[in-house]
Amino acid sequence: KYLVLALYDYQEKSPREVTMKKGDILTLLNSTNKDWWKVEVNGRQGFVPAAYVKYL
């Protein structure tokens, strides 16, 4: 498993997404889509914009 760092705040806009705050450390679950990565944060799984996170 990889960890990624939230570069920006992101507010979920659909039930498939998750909210994150700048500085959050997220567990990367799937990065096959170049635009949306599946992550786990605070016990929830969902998608965030790939451009908003970077590998640690």
Rank of each mutant, 00 (worst) to 15 (best):
residue 12 E to T: 08
residue 55 Y to F: 15
residue 32 T to M: 12
residue 44 R to T: 07
residue 44 R to M: 08
residue 45 Q to Y: 08
residue 48 V to Q: 00
residue 34 K to L: 10
residue 38 K to R: 11
residue 8 Y to R: 13
residue 32 T to V: 11
residue 50 A to T: 06
residue 46 G to R: 02
residue 4 V to A: 10
residue 49 P to Y: 02
residue 5 L to I: 15
residue 21 K to C: 10
residue 55 Y to V: 15
residue 4 V to R: 02
residue 13 K to D: 06
residue 18 V to A: 05
residue 52 Y to L: 12
residue 37 W to R: 02
residue 4 V to Y: 11
residue 12 E to A: 15
residue 42 N to Y: 09
residue 48 V to K: 00
residue 24 D to W: 10
residue 42 N to Q: 10
residue 54 K to Y: 10
residue 23 G to R: 02
residue 51 A to V: 10
residue 19 T to W: 04
residue 18 V to S: 02
residue 39 V to W: 00
residue 41 V to M: 12
residue 53 V to A: 03
residue 41 V to C: 10
residue 50 A to I: 04
residue 17 E to N: 05
residue 36 W to V: 03
residue 21 K to T: 09
residue 32 T to I: 10
residue 12 E to W: 05
residue 43 G to V: 02
residue 35 D to T: 14
residue 3 L to W: 12
residue 2 Y to S: 13
residue 29 L to M: 08
residue 49 P to A: 02
residue 31 S to L: 08
residue 20 M to C: 06
residue 20 M to H: 01
residue 11 Q to I: 14
residue 33 N to M: 09
residue 26 L to Q: 00
residue 42 N to P: 05
residue 3 L to I: 10
residue 14 S to R: 09
residue 56 L to K: 06
residue 18 V to N: 04
residue 48 V to T: 02
residue 33 N to P: 05
residue 25 I to Q: 06
residue 22 K to C: 07
residue 53 V to S: 00
residue 44 R to G: 04
residue 29 L to R: 04
residue 55 Y to A: 13
residue 55 Y to Q: 13
residue 4 V to C: 11
residue 34 K to T: 11
residue 54 K to Q: 14
residue 10 Y to D: 01
residue 46 G to H: 02
residue 50 A to R: 13
residue 30 N to E: 14
residue 54 K to T: 15
residue 51 A to S: 14
residue 44 R to A: 07
residue 21 K to G: 05
residue 28 L to R: 01
residue 55 Y to K: 13
residue 44 R to N: 08
residue 48 V to A: 03
residue 7 L to N: 04
residue 50 A to G: 05
residue 6 A to D: 00
residue 31 S to V: 10
residue 53 V to L: 15
residue 12 E to P: 15
residue 20 M to G: 00
residue 13 K to F: 05
residue 28 L to E: 00
residue 9 D to N: 08
residue 56 L to H: 09
residue 55 Y to L: 15
residue 29 L to V: 12
residue 21 K to V: 09
residue 40 E to M: 10
residue 15 P to V: 11
residue 34 K to E: 11
residue 40 E to V: 08
residue 2 Y to G: 13
residue 33 N to S: 11
residue 30 N to Y: 08
residue 10 Y to W: 11
residue 2 Y to M: 12
residue 32 T to R: 12
residue 17 E to R: 04
residue 26 L to G: 09
residue 29 L to Q: 04
residue 56 L to C: 11
residue 36 W to I: 03
residue 18 V to E: 01
residue 39 V to K: 00
residue 47 F to T: 03
residue 56 L to S: 07
